[in-house]
Write a protein that binds this DNA or RNA. Structure first.
Lengths: 332, 332
DNA sequence: TTGAAAGCGCTAACAG
DNA sequence: CTGTTAGCGCTTTCAA
């Protein structure tokens, strides 16, 4: 493989000049530059970026930790991350964690071995929680965040968004609302539940007016949770699922049981994944600015990498949008 | 940052011994090893893998080129790639190409700059087509392949799978079948069309019995293509879409027009993405072994990287499975 | 504007 | 089993 020395010999200049020709072309005379470029061309020279990065102690790679890349909401975020990173000269290392702390830690450690310059974490945990404040690598948490963060976080107003869904259902006239929530220990679940409670209270209803079933964000868990909700003596007339996939699972189950949506039960989701505007019925949901999440995460992370001192561990809140579609209607 | 020299001093041994302790622990006496490990621990030493890889001229990274990471079929494949790569000590670099040849080339070139050891390409193009046979980096094409490949390919029996769908529709009694195909220039589209033609012929029907509309694998394109098919004087009674997302778009449009699926029109898809078993109606489709695609791609690629001479540019065909669900039924 | 030379952190002969 | 040393390909002083 042609290296900088091959080129320097071919061009009759020093290796330093070859290096300059590619990194700071202006510091080289037009004449020499041409000579070097020609030689490089002839030799089929490609700079060894591993060597360059090694020397610069920078990998120009960003590690992205995602619980489940097959989740369409996450993959939209990753699209946003990828495109912003690419335009800044960073490459994306993908780490599918399946929510396992061990894999998370393994991947996050790639920062310590200089394989990545920073980490974007898509779930609510801090892989560097054991490190003292001054020694924490660049990290940004997005989407699912947690209390007392030591790194910047970018998230939705989950409480407000959940309240918006509940308000919508209340306005339609629903008074018994079922909820299929996410993992119980997640701050995201907690925030959305808070929003639900607040919205109910404002209409003079107690949270106990809501029947809550457990889900895990998988379509199947939405499917199964419906049985729990429909077996209550006071059946809900509307069901709010904490993501669209569970909503799709719920709708499937409701239909399998011989009921219709929204005729017999209204169903609302969260995220506004692509299929939600085409599903049968189309899904009332909360739109999250997925690409923006990704883009901002990269912006903030790059700032942490380039100028750590300028970064405060900020909390950013991105706006949601209530999208009302065919899956919600007044109770029959 | 602690390096190998810091540790060597702290432990009172040479740098070589420290290196050995971590790369070939057996070649070091138990005693020294303990000493070194303690020193490393104390110094907070982490081997600089950038330096190690640089020296080994290997990045232990695999570049994955994907047209659109938001496509759920692709993200399932990537899951498979990721998990196999991880277990082999490789990391995954993600390149979203949007089908643009330029981005494809940019990302693929990271092999030349030593940022990746090989490329897995999820669409039908060869980013190294301009390179002479001996100089081609490790590359594996999966899912969408092409003729006269210079690198290994792993794909489905697209022709057979398409034929299986057509057979299924014919058996149900459909005689006028509409097709929403993929991009016209894609070998994948061509292969599936061939399968359709073969299946029709076997029942004594000409391919002209099939009305073909253009799609691009997006849900919206399936939605729009329905108008083309339903405006024909001889309307099809069944529609075969070349992926599930177009099928979902098609079903949406058919219902918007006041018809039912499968009552008025049967619809079949391709891929068996997660939502297809929950959609309304559930989708008849072809199951592709997505995770296996990913796993095999990594296996073959690693073989190319480790022992290029043992690899023939093989063509592997993975098995499909016809999944009949609620979206297809006899014509009314 | 250019060249000589040191060195990033690591591994691998080679010698002992 | 352990140490010395050269060198991977590149950038960057420092001098000329």
């Amino acid at each position: 493989m042609a290296n900088i020395r091959t080129v320097s010999k071919l061009a009759g200049v020093s290796v330093a000049t070859v290096s300059r020709t590619f990194s700071t072309p202006d510091s080289v005379s037009e004449n020499t530059r041409k000579k070097v470029e020609k030689a490089a061309e002839k030799a089929g020279y490609r700079p060894n970026l591993m060597a360059r990065n090694f020397r610069a102690k920078r990998s120009f790679a960003i590690m992205v930790l995602v619980p489940n890349i097959a989740n369409p909401f996450f993959s939209r975020i990753i699209s946003g991350i990828e495109s912003e990173a690419q335009s800044r000269g960073y490459s994306i290392l993908l780490g599918n964690t399946n929510g396992q702390a061990e894999r998370e830690a393994d991947y996050a450690n790639m920062v310590h071995t200089f394989q990545a310059d920073g980490v974007i974490q898509l779930s609510a945990s801090d892989p560097f929680s054991d490190l003292p404040l001054g020694k924490r690598p660049a990290l940004v948490n997005i989407c699912e965040c947690y209390d007392n963060p030591l790194s910047p976080q970018i998230q939705l107003d989950n409480s407000g968004a959940a309240a918006a869904i509940i308000d919508h259902l209340l306005e339609l006239g629903h008074r018994r609302i079922g909820i299929i929530k996410g993992p119980a220990d997640s701050p995201l679940t907690r925030d959305r539940l808070e929003g639900c409670a607040a919205a109910l209270k404002q209409t003079g209803l107690e949270m106990s007016a809501a029947a809550i079933a457990q889900g895990d964000f998988s379509t199947r868990s939405g499917f199964e949770a419906v049985d729990t909700l429909l077996s209550l003596r006071k059946r809900p007339t509307a069901i709010f699922c904490f993501n669209d996939e569970m909503a799709i699972g719920a709708i499937r189950r409701i239909r399998d049981l011989g009921y219709s949506v929204p005729g017999d039960f209204s169903v609302a989701g969260f995220d506004d994944i692509a299929v939600s505007s085409f599903s049968v019925p189309t899904l009332t949901t909360i739109h999250q600015p997925a690409a923006t999440f990704g883009r901002r995460a990269v912006e903030v992370l790059c700032q942490m990498i380039d100028a750590p001192e300028t970064v405060t561990h900020s909390q950013e809140i991105l706006p949601y949008k209530l999208i009302t579609r065919g899956s919600t209607a007044p109770p029959s």
